[in-house]
């Protein structure tokens, strides 16, 4: 940094500290992500959202799976757990049930959450488990060298679809909406202000909240498909992302280099797993239920609301 400071054109911007340093493990830098990768931007938005939401840092835990985005847990200065491939959601589920006071956030990639972890995410959304899932979607497996993902659009080139991808990709917001998520939004890494706002809303939303953050993978996705650099992908988002809040999630598939619909698609109130469980056990067991007093409190709150 000191070298940069000598150059007058950097004088105003170069600082020894990142503005979000208080939520980052600065002692682990430099990170492993490529230059112009979108994950760092998404992490910055997330850190800012925690501050804006006014959540005590000690009350947030972050859980990641495996992959490029799976490394997020290692760089965020919170109680952070880097688990196995695809299993961040059940880990988060166990943690939330053991300590309901915690805000438990899963931060992982499209392959981790929707291929190997697909069974877990659909069930967590169905249960309306009170966790927030942030999915960085870069349309490809980055960590292992650019293989096809369940999100790769037709007919993108990846190392395992060298003649073009032909499988139908998942439309993530549609899948999450169908499974019962309480909150669903999609932005790109370019939409930093709106992405931060969505994270804030998701963190404060009771129940299963899901935010898809489309992010450039310049090293693999962009290069294999001759789409330029990460900068060019950001330019593409700028020119092709259309903000349409409340769009029907069935109609927001992402095609190869087509328009990308972004916005907040679902924001609904559904009782969480914990609320349903308390309600059911209390109605059956009454005073025998060990959380009877808490359940009564919850009922009162419901009536007051």
């Amino acid at each position: 940094m000191s070298d940069l400071k000598m150059d007058p054109c950097y004088e105003d911007v170069a600082e020894d500290r990142h503005p979000m340093d208080h939520l980052l493990r600065a002692d682990r830098l430099p990170h492993i992500w490529c230059a112009t990768c979108g994950i760092g931007t998404v992490v910055k938005c997330f850190a800012e959202a925690i501050d804006k939401a006014g959540i005590d840092y000690d009350d947030v835990a972050i859980v990641s799976g495996i992959g490029c985005t799976g490394r997020v847990a290692g760089y965020v200065k919170l109680d952070s757990y880097h688990t196995t491939h695809g299993r961040a959601i059940p880990f988060a589920t166990g943690m939330k049930l053991a300590n309901p006071r915690m805000k438990v956030v899963v931060f992982s990639g499209d392959g981790d959450l929707f291929a190997i972890g697909g069974n877990h995410i659909i069930h967590a959304a169905r249960r309306n488990m009170d966790i927030t899932v942030i999915c960085v979607n870069n349309f490809i497996y980055g960590m292992t060298g650019g293989q096809a993902a369940p999100t790769t659009p037709n007919t993108a080139n990846t190392s395992t679809t060298p003649h073009g991808a032909f499988e139908q990709p998942f439309n993530l917001p549609h899948l999450m909406e169908a499974c019962g998520a309480a909150y669903v939004a999609r932005w790109t890494a370019l939409h930093v202000r709106r992405l931060t706002e969505s994270f804030q809303e998701a963190l404060l939303k009771p129940g299963f909240s899901f935010v898809e953050a489309i992010a450039p993978c310049s090293t693999l996705y962009a290069r294999r498909n001759k789409l330029g650099s990460g900068y060019d992908l950001m330019r593409f988002y700028h020119d092709n992302a259309e903000i349409k809040h409340g769009s029907d999630p069935r109609e927001i598939d992402i095609g190869y280099q087509n328009k990308i619909t972004v916005g907040k698609f679902v924001d609904r109130d559904r009782p969480t797993w914990q609320m349903k469980s308390m309600e059911q056990l209390d109605s059956t067991l009454g005073e025998k239920y060990y959380l009877h007093d808490e359940a009564c409190e919850m009922c009162k709150e419901d009536i007051n609301a």
Binding site: L97, A98, H120
Partner: peptide
């Protein structure tokens, strides 16, 4: 008690539960 979607989820939820304090 939670009945998970499979045994992979079960053991992983157990680990999450432990780090959550259970």
């Amino acid at each position: 008690f939670i009945q998970m979607e499979d045994e992979i989820a079960s053991i992983t939820a157990v680990l999450g539960g432990v780090w959550g304090g259970a």
